[in-house]
Nucleic acid binder design. Structure first.
Lengths: 144, 144
DNA sequence: ATGGGTGCAAAGGATTTGCAACATT
DNA sequence: AATGTTGCAAATCCTTTGCACCCAT
């Protein structure tokens, strides 16, 4: 249950590693399931009894602002987060809403600062949308 | 002020071209500014006096479901829409929230149905995040 | 007349805000 | 003591829903 990685990442980014922040980032790193705010809150409310949703909101926003986590906004009205900050492609299932990592797809590479028409690019995101394999199977069954 | 393109696109997709739907899709096609629901509503409420936000919501959702428009979800809690259904890269300014089209960047091509690990890919989206040229200039001024 | 389309008002949820309490240096 | 953090409750804002009306076929 070491939280070394979370701890280091916070310190590197100049963020004071409070109990809450450590717990949240550690959870994110250890659970690459693209949790949303509520998921994180539910998972931690027992371990960090005083934890509030507000803190989860604030912390996750801050983490994504300093690139200590990735904010994923594919799902229309439910932001979720990814503790994996290596660039990788995401697949979003329109049916069940699940987000799957596609590590084998070529992701836009992190270049040194790239400028296009004067616009300074800091992050790149590529995602696919469609039907995930689990949902596709279920649908096939019903059709038969 | 012809709405031929909007009309044709609706009919092609099997959607009845009501006054409201025509107005909304036409607006989207003629204003490639990535408007959100409110933008579209404000722009049309005078021209289509009875128009309701509900109809804008319903119509834009429907249009994106049948691929007569693109739903863009970069901005955390404000979905916006694009009448341009050719694949192209979007740039999102973290500072002012503006979304800019990058037609010269290579966009993920629309392939025939692509399947990855059993997941059926139907759409692909690539976007960049950073600071747009206008904001970058303003910031530079302040710094000097 | 009938089925789809629209619009109002109300409900529902997610996120933000203001502020007081708290922890840490 | 001073500064940065946290958490509660309330406020806000976006979106959806239920239902009645309306229009076109």
């Amino acid at each position: 249950m070491k939280k070394a990685e979370a701890y280091n990442r916070l310190v590197e980014k100049g963020i004071r590693p409070s109990v809450q922040r450590l717990a949240i980032l550690d959870y994110l790193i250890k659970h690459p399931t693209h949790p949303n705010i509520e998921d994180v809150y539910k998972a931690l409310e027992n371990k960090v009894p005083t934890l509030s949703r507000t803190t989860v909101y604030n912390t996750l926003r801050m983490l994504s602002e300093v690139n200590a986590a990735q904010m994923i906004t594919i799902n229309e009205h439910r932001v979720c987060y990814d503790g994996n900050i290596e660039p990788h492609v995401h697949f979003y299932c329109k049916n069940c809403g699940k987000i799957i990592d596609l590590f084998d797809e070529q992701a836009p590479r992190v270049t040194e600062t790239k400028v296009i028409d004067g616009n300074i690019v800091q992050e790149e995101q590529l995602y696919y949308k469609g039907i995930c394999s689990a949902c596709a199977q279920k649908m096939e069954k019903k059709t038969n």
